[in-house]
């Protein structure tokens, strides 16, 4: 498990957009903690693997209203790796 720390403005839409970046990439959110830090929202989002965290890190930083994204590191070892199957020809055709 890998935890991401996301500091964002509380402007409407920023938090929704943050969550959508995970679902857009088919990354499951294992745990979500929400709190405040000063005038900002602080999210701790746990995902399964480093690969998931790497995939979403830079897109999160692009969001208007997101101030800082940090990979807080591994919470615990993932039980199993993600065995993503290679795409079928039909999937590749789009």
């Amino acid at each position: 498990m890998v935890k991401l720390r996301i500091l964002a403005s509380e402007e409407e839409g920023t938090l929704q957009r943050t969550i959508f970046e995970f679902s857009k990439r088919n990354i499951e959110i294992e745990r979500l903690l929400y709190s405040h830090e000063g005038d900002h929202a602080l999210l701790h989002i746990t995902v399964k693997s480093d690969a998931d965290a790497i995939k979403v890190l830079k897109p999160l930083r692009k969001i208007h209203g997101v101030i800082e994204v940090q990979n807080s590191g591994r919470e615990e070892e993932a039980e199993t790796g993600r065995n993503r199957m290679p795409m079928t020809p039909q999937e590749m055709l789009g």
Binding site: Q16, R17, I63, H64, G65
Partner: peptide, 11 residues
């Protein structure tokens, strides 16, 4: 507003 989040840079 929420429907347009995934198809906009920001809203």
């Amino acid at each position: 507003f929420d429907m347009m989040i995934p198809v906009t840079k920001s809203n």
